[in-house]
């Protein structure tokens, strides 16, 4: 019975994906989507579907799921409703990596995501080494400091070595987009996110226990240090891999866990799958909006998610404050 809500959210995500397939600069009626996909014809519509829409919608599902999961994990580990997947500097580290490739003129297809991924992981790794005794506050403060450091590095590299066109390219990357995701990228993104979901679900118990703090978790038989290592590790991989391929997508990781807890409550055994499915749904629609609102141009995905996410987050804040929490 408890699982009905996550199941419903999964159905919603899949249904959204099907609908979103028809949406774009070339609109394809929903009734034709199925037959076009199955027939395997060579009409322009069929090719657009197979080669552009399907990978893109799948990317929306997968990236949204990854960010939703990472956000839920971060908020659980840090016992803080303001935590998001980029808390420990993933976005800034990845940005520095991307700018490095631009500045040094490395332009192979694999270079940029690889550099972004490594930058993101490096930021969290440094955070982990520097964060005082790995307590929550120490980690958060180290994250803030490192984020500033990486931003400074990014700005420096950008101005010193990259031309105007590169700056534009970086700017677009930094606001997020699913446009660059095609089948090869999906072959990495998809399995990574699915595997992370599979590994995280059995750790929901630990996340629940961590809600009582480090010692509270210990008294429930959970080793808080080990749990934090595993959980932060997985969340970092998720955040870094999505940033690597899609840039910085704001607010999804912050808002989705809140929305989900409103629906299923605070039990992480339900929150984690629900956050994955809701994140997927949200991003599929956000991307559909990004590619249609100002067609033939695309809006950066991060601006759409921020436009949707920020007011919702403000509403949550307001509701909480008025409840005196």
């Amino acid at each position: 019975m408890k699982w009905a809500v996550p199941a419903l959210l999964l159905a919603l995500a899949l249904g959204s994906a099907l609908l979103a397939l028809g949406i774009g600069p070339v609109s394809i009626p929903a009734s034709q989507v199925f037959s076009l996909l199955l027939s395997g014809g060579a009409t322009p519509e069929a090719r657009i579907l197979r080669e552009l829409r399907v990978p893109r919608v799948l990317a929306g599902l997968v990236v949204g799921a990854g960010l939703g999961l990472a956000g839920a994990v971060m908020q659980g580990v840090f016992r803080n409703p303001l935590a998001d997947p980029y808390l420990l500097g993933v976005a800034n580290g990845a940005a520095a990596g991307v700018v490095a490739t631009l500045a040094f003129g490395i332009s192979s297809r694999e270079a940029r995501p690889a550099a972004a991924f490594l930058g993101g992981v490096l930021a969290v790794f440094l955070c982990w080494r520097l964060g005082w005794r790995r307590r929550e506050l120490g980690l958060i403060l180290a994250g803030i400091a490192l984020a500033a450091l990486f931003s400074a590095l990014t700005g420096f590299l950008l101005l010193a070595f990259a031309g105007t066109r590169r700056v534009e390219e970086f700017l677009f990357w930094s606001m997020g987009s699913l446009a660059r995701v095609s089948w090869p990228e999906l072959r990495i993104l998809g399995p990574t996110v699915l595997a992370a979901l599979g590994i995280l679900l059995p750790w929901a118990r630990e996340l629940n226990a961590l809600a009582l703090g480090e010692e509270g978790a210990l008294h429930l038989g959970v080793d808080p240090h080990r749990a934090r290592r595993v959980l932060l590790g997985l969340s970092t991989v998720l955040a870094s891999v999505t940033v690597a391929f899609c840039g910085v997508v704001a607010f999804v990781g912050l808002v989705v866990p809140h929305m989900v807890r409103l629906i299923v409550g605070p039990d992480h055994r339900l929150v984690l799958p629900a956050a994955a499915f809701t994140g997927g749904t949200l991003l599929v629609w956000a991307d559909a909006a990004a590619r249609t609102l100002r067609a033939p141009w695309e809006l950066p995905l991060g601006t759409v998610t921020a436009l949707l996410g920020a007011p919702f987050f403000l509403y949550l804040l307001w509701a909480r404050l008025s409840k005196g929490l």
């Binding site: 010692e215 509270g216 210990l218 807890r261 605070p266 929490l325």
Partner: peptide, 23 residues
């Protein structure tokens, strides 16, 4: 092991506070 100990020993901390608004 932490888990086995928690099956035998429980502690009520002073001022413990769950991070989420649990029922």
């Amino acid at each position: 092991p932490a888990r086995e100990r928690a099956q035998r020993l429980a502690m009520v901390e002073q001022g413990a506070q769950p991070a989420f608004d649990l029922t």
